[in-house]
């Protein structure tokens, strides 16, 4: 049995693959899962800085593949959590340094000792993408509610199906509820209908994600941001829980008052 290998990909760059990978890694590890996040973006590594682990890297994925170190030596443990590890990409090489069968071998070596291996795919549909998808048991597609990102997501969904890795599930990232309400952004239903795949999460646009990237402490570490809670919802869904799609906006004054009154009501018998 062993770990589930989940690849996070998107086609288009800049939609938030690395942010999603880092946060799902954190959220799953906080739920007691043993997790390795693997950066498959050789030459443009970023997962390390998202997690604030950039100063602790000694070896990387290419060192492992080329037998300069053992797999365990390349893995960086996130000290903030019990069981979260990063397998970093090489920064000075390119995608041809790793082959799909190398990724399969590395993941197979880790399967017995972990619950989740999250593979952060590079953008595009070339070798880096094929490397990232090769070991996958499941695929998550990240998109933004905009024309170019949805179009590329559709292309990638087709490729995943052709590889026999489907059906992929969808994460809609950076949704702006106010724009949707005004009719000036694709809404969730439209995106799902166009792409015809299952949704596993909606992450609202949230400034907390930017400050988290600045500090190297992903939003999922706390539940005081909307995005952080949305990432935990995805983690719970991955673990098989039925989680309703929650609110995408902080409640206004009245909403908070109502929530407070309800909470008070529940406490008194």
């Amino acid at each position: 049995m062993g770990a589930r290998v989940i690849t996070i990909t998107s086609g288009k760059g800049g939609v938030g693959k690395t942010t999603v990978t880092a946060n799902l890694g954190v959220a799953l590890a906080m739920r007691g899962q043993r997790v390795v996040v693997i950066d498959a973006d050789i030459g443009l590594r970023n997962l390390d800085v998202m997690l604030g682990l950039e100063n602790r890297i000694v070896y990387d994925l290419v060192d492992v593949v080329e037998n300069r170190c053992r797999l365990r030596q390349a893995m960086v443990r996130d000290k903030r959590l019990q069981e979260l590890y990063l397998l970093p990409a090489a920064q000075t090489r390119d995608k041809t340094a790793v082959r799909p069968e190398d990724m399969v071998r590395v993941c197979d070596e880790l399967r017995d000792s972990f619950d989740f291996l999250l593979v952060d795919s590079p953008a595009g549909i070339e070798q880096g993408f094929r490397n990232a998808v090769a070991p996958a048991d499941e695929v998550l597609i990240v998109t933004n509610p905009e024309v170019a990102a949805v179009r590329d997501a559709d292309r990638v969904i087709g490729l995943i199906e052709a590889e026999g890795k489907g059906p992929a599930r969808l994460i809609i990232n950076r949704l702006k509820p106010d724009l949707v309400r005004r009719g000036d952004m694709l809404n969730t239903d439209a995106v799902i209908e166009l792409l015809a795949i299952d949704l596993i999460g909606i992450i609202p646009e949230d400034e907390a994600v930017i400050t988290a990237a600045n500090t190297g402490r992903p939003v999922a570490f706390t539940d005081n941001s909307l995005a952080g809670r949305a990432f935990h919802d995805i983690a719970r869904r991955l673990l098989g829980e039925e989680v309703p799609f929650g609110p995408l906006k902080e409640p206004g004054f009245l909403g908070r008052l109502l929530r407070w009154m309800r909470a008070e009501g529940e406490e008194s018998p």
């Binding site: 949707v180 009719g183 952004m185 694709l186 439209a190 166009l194």
Partner: peptide, 20 residues
């Protein structure tokens, strides 16, 4: 003009059909 989200949906409908 319909709202731009609606325009995006229509454009995508066509683009995806042709891409696929």
């Amino acid at each position: 003009e319909p709202p731009s989200g609606e325009i995006a949906r229509e454009r995508l409908r066509l683009v995806l059909a042709h891409d696929r």
